[in-house]
Design a protein around this nucleic acid. Sequence first.
RNA 1: GGAGAGGUGUCCGAGUGGUUGAAGGAGCACGCCUGGAAAGCGUGUAAAUGGGCAACCGUUUCCGGGGUUCGAAUCCCCGCCUCUCCGCCA
Length: 425
Amino acid sequence: MIDIKLIRQDIDTVRKSIHDRKARVDLEEIQALDSSRRDILFEIDNLKMKRNENSAAVGKGNLAPDEKGKLITQTKELGEKIKQGDQKIRELEEAISGKMQLIPNILNESTPLGDSEEDNPEIRRFGEPRIFDFPVMDHADIGTALDLLDFPRGVKLAQSRFTLLKGAGARLERALINFMLDTHTGQNGYQEIFPPLLVNQNAMRGTGQLPKFEEDLFKTTTGLYLIPSAEVPLTNIYNDEILREEELPICFTAYTPCFRSEAGSYGKDTKGYIRQHQFNKVELVKFAHPDQSFDELEKLVRNAEMILELLELPYRVISLCSADIGFSAAKCYDLEVWLPSENRYREISSCSNCTDFQARRANIRFKPKEGGKNRFVHTLNGSGLAVGRTLAAILENYQTKEGGLIVPKVLVPYMGGLTEILRNH
RNA sequence: GGAGAGGUGUCCGAGUGGUUGAAGGAGCACGCCUGGAAAGCGUGUAAAUGGGCAACCGUUUCCGGGGUUCGAAUCCCCGCCUCUCCGCCA
C-alpha cells in the first residue's frame, strides 16, 4: 500500500508511476472519497469534543438537577449524530482502503521504463553457454531417460503440473536445497527459518497477494492459503511489530515448497519441470533501513547469483522495466539461467525491493535511534534460488554425449560422493 | 471435542463506570556521579488520525465487532487468539 498522503500532496508522482506501469487506477475517485472523509471526520470530532465536555460536566456533579437533565438529553442527541457520522466514516474508509490496496507500489527512479518484457535491460552476464557437439536434449527428456523425473505419475497422483522426483533426481533436488541453505546461512549471513506453509488472509494481504491476486492461490476449506512463496510467511514474521533500528538489517532464508494455481498460464511451459503447481524454492527476505534498502538489494542479488556461480551455470541479470515489474516492487532484478534446449535465458530468481509498500500493509515499523516517530522498514525478497528450475538447468547444462549427467562439483558432497549419473540402458 | 483461565503501551505488569492515556517495573534517551565503565540518582519516553506554516489544539485507541450509559480498559452479547487440564492423534 502506498501512503495516501502521496495522493493528497504529490499525485503527479503516483500518476506517473501508474502510467509507467501501464496500470489503471481511478485516483480521482480516491481523492474525492478521501476529502469527504476528512470533512465528516472534522465535523464528528467536534461533536465528540462537545460530548466529552458535557459528560465531564455531568460527572463533576455540581449542576442543578434540571440543568443536568437538560444536558443529558442534549448529549444523548449528540450521541445519535455521532453514531451516524462514525458509520459514514467507516464506510468511506472501507471504500478508500479497498481502492488503495489495488494501487501498485511507486516505482523507484532507477527502474527502467519500458512497454513490455522485451524492454528489460541486461545488467551483466556470467559464464559462457557451453558448446555442444551433439544434439542437446531438454531437461524433461533427460530427466525421464535417467528416471529422475516421472511426469505421468505426478499427473496420476494429482493433476497436470505435478511431478514425481525419483532416486538420484529426488536426491539432487534435496542436495540443491541443502547446498543453497548452507551457503546463505554459512556465507551470506541469513538466519534459517522453517515457516508454516499455510497462512491466513491477513498475512496474504500484508505482502500484497490479496486482495488482487486471489486466483493465483490455493485456498483450504478452513480459509487458509497455501503459500505461493516463503516471502509471505517470512515477511509477515514481523507483522504488526516494532523493531529496533540497531537490529536492521534482518536477513532470513527459508526452504519451502511453494504452491501456485497458475491460473491463466494455460499453454505456457506445459512440458517439463519449469512451471509447476508445487515447486521448491529457497527464499531470501530482508528487513532493511529505508536509507540502506537499495544497497541491500544489490547484496541480495549477489547472494542469489553466488549460487549460480558456484554451480557454474551461465546466467544473466536483467532489470525489470516499468511494464514488467511486480505489483509490490519498486525495483526488481531477475536472474535468468541459460537453458540450452531453448537456446535462451530463463527466469530462475526474482529479487525485489518492496520499499515500504509491504511494511505499510503489514504494519512493520522500527524505532529510530535518534528518537522521533516510528518509521516503516523496507522489505526485500528474492529467490535464492528456485530449486526446480535449478535442477532443470543442471540437467540441460551438465548432460553428456552418452545421455548421462555430470554432478556439479559443489553438489558432489551432498550426493554422497556421486559424480555422475549414468544411463542404464 | 469437553472444562477452566486470560488477551492492557517497545516489553513485563497494575487497574471492575467519571482528573486512567492509563500505577509500578524493564528497556531506551538525556543529565548527575566516575579516571573510564557498571551500579546508583534525577528527568524524559505510546500510537494512529484530523486541523494549523508552526507553537499547539482536537479525536480515537487497553484483541476485534456489536450493545448498555450523559460517560466504558472497567458492565452485557458475539467472534478471534493464547494458556492450563482432560480426550483424540503424527
